[in-house]
Nucleic acid binder design. Sequence first.
DNA 1: CGATTAAATGTTAGCGCTAACATTTTGTAG
DNA 2: CTACAAAATGTTAGCGCTAACATTTAATCG
Lengths: 344, 344
Amino acid sequence: MTDQPSTERRRRKGLDSPTLSDVAREAGVSSITVSRALNAPDSVRANTRKKIEAAIDKVGYVRNMVAGSLASASSRFIPVIVPSLSNVVFVEVIQGLQATFEQHGYQILLGNTDYSMKREEELIRTFLGWSPTALVTTGLRHQESLSNLLARYQRPLVEIMELGDAIDMNVGMSHYRAGHCMADHLVSRGYRRILYAGTQMEGNYRTRQRYEGHRERLLQSGLDAPLMEWRTPSHFDLGATALDAALHEYPNIEAIHFTDDVMASGALLHATKRGLKIPEDIAIAGFTGLPFGQALTPRLTTVVSPREAIGRLAATQIITRLEGQQPQQHSIDVGFELIVGESS
Amino acid sequence: MTDQPSTERRRRKGLDSPTLSDVAREAGVSSITVSRALNAPDSVRANTRKKIEAAIDKVGYVRNMVAGSLASASSRFIPVIVPSLSNVVFVEVIQGLQATFEQHGYQILLGNTDYSMKREEELIRTFLGWSPTALVTTGLRHQESLSNLLARYQRPLVEIMELGDAIDMNVGMSHYRAGHCMADHLVSRGYRRILYAGTQMEGNYRTRQRYEGHRERLLQSGLDAPLMEWRTPSHFDLGATALDAALHEYPNIEAIHFTDDVMASGALLHATKRGLKIPEDIAIAGFTGLPFGQALTPRLTTVVSPREAIGRLAATQIITRLEGQQPQQHSIDVGFELIVGESS
DNA sequence: CGATTAAATGTTAGCGCTAACATTTTGTAG
DNA sequence: CTACAAAATGTTAGCGCTAACATTTAATCG
């Protein structure tokens, strides 16, 4: 008769840690007021806010973001999908994104596709379960089912790295034009037998877009546009291997336009070691504008794009939209710059 | 009389997306069974599972991870705190962590401290609000208040990169011994006037631990252990600057032991450009074992540690514990390897 | 083949927070 | 000092899922 068994029937493990109501009780207000003090401090009187802050300290309150996200159906998470972390380019883009998002209280959920569109879709589907505030993914090409999904997505979405028909917003550059620009440089330097060489052109199709631009420019001058491709990831040693292979396959080649600075630098260093004169015996060009390419002698000719800026701009586009405004433009061309070193 | 206004009083925005119960209704089971089919497929009969899977497809169910995390008080998030993303070392460690965690369905929450212990504490406190499953942070030194917090943390915790008294578990190497090892190499090569040079030794105190080891070895042989330090982040150009400054300050110097391969490579390239012979005029050594250091001529002498393995091992330690077992050892020494190039 | 046990499924009650609406307090003008 | 609007705070009811216990169904055995 003394107990009330039915009342006590179930008990959840309930982390003993204090909750909003503990803080509220301590501060002598209701829990929604504490919630407001945390989420919109200006909507609470300074005096009340002070009491709440004291109560938070006193009880050692740690905010439960999960509960908040469930109640508000939004999580302050922003998934960022990149194809690789081995390529510095994406790391720098991420840094730009992170720096900007952090200032606004958003947290990146990093997803790595390894250049697989299937993986991209899986990752995005999983991340959607976290009620993300917005979405950032790499490239404009996706599996059809993912494109459909994204087209219906109601929150800000930025596709980065390239330019074109974006689902929502877009920050990037034209890889076609970058390839065209480098080819133009090489042709105008007087090189005629120019090889395009690199790796992973299936998965990283932007590499191939640069080749298309390159090819177009060579054809304009009535030149052939030979191509050599490797399947393994880009690496310094592969640059060396590629140079040997290229000289074997095309003994008269005058210039090699590599898909990236890593291979180009590897080739450049290897050429020097082989006693080849650069650019007299062979000219070398890269893409990306990595610091070590510019530290070499001769300096590597390359095309550089503002990688961290891509991240910052993408984040800014999203923040603008989240603040209820429309960004100036839905598509931002960050452009690129030709860096002419002594390697060409 | 037809309406029931009181029943309809409030309505939450309720994302129209289907929930577990929608799936359950469709499959003709209860929602907990659907939950089990997702979380522990083996606990549901194959037949039932099939019906549920069909229902999921039919209604287009997307799992709400937030609700699940709240109900279970655990989120499958594992925060990873690193001091920098500009240093490839940490990127590779993250790749190792991610690869392993992904296989087990855990998601990294990436935090970047910029070598600030204050920032580290802020990040961890925020991440704790996400009910993380475990925690990974860099280094053994933290703000006192954070150390106290972590000491009370009830879930797996790995401190990476260095060796010593860990709060819970530990994966790393001895930076002291690495510095000692390189100094030993240089001394045994016959160099006597050896400079230690590098950057950011306050924040990245592991750099200084290597100096301590270096210094100890030189003192053993009765040699001086001069030190030059810059405040700016490591960079190829800084390596060049450092070389000039070192030769100006210590005209007779025979060898320079740099804090990292980036500066060492920058110095090496700059020395070659200046017409200095390596290692005859000046020997150069680095730390990290980055690919481009090994692509140079002469190859850079350096110390390499298994960076991705650190990540994989740290993740494995955590997984082991989450599976209810005790890992073989709480502290794992991944060691390091001296790579002797032609630069020393 | 009924008794016993194990496996599968169901019922109920929250997890800790915030949206939506309700009420009280404060500020301001006449 | 009242009337009214605006600002601050409160009440209530979930968000969508899973822990804990309850019940049903299938499997095993003498």
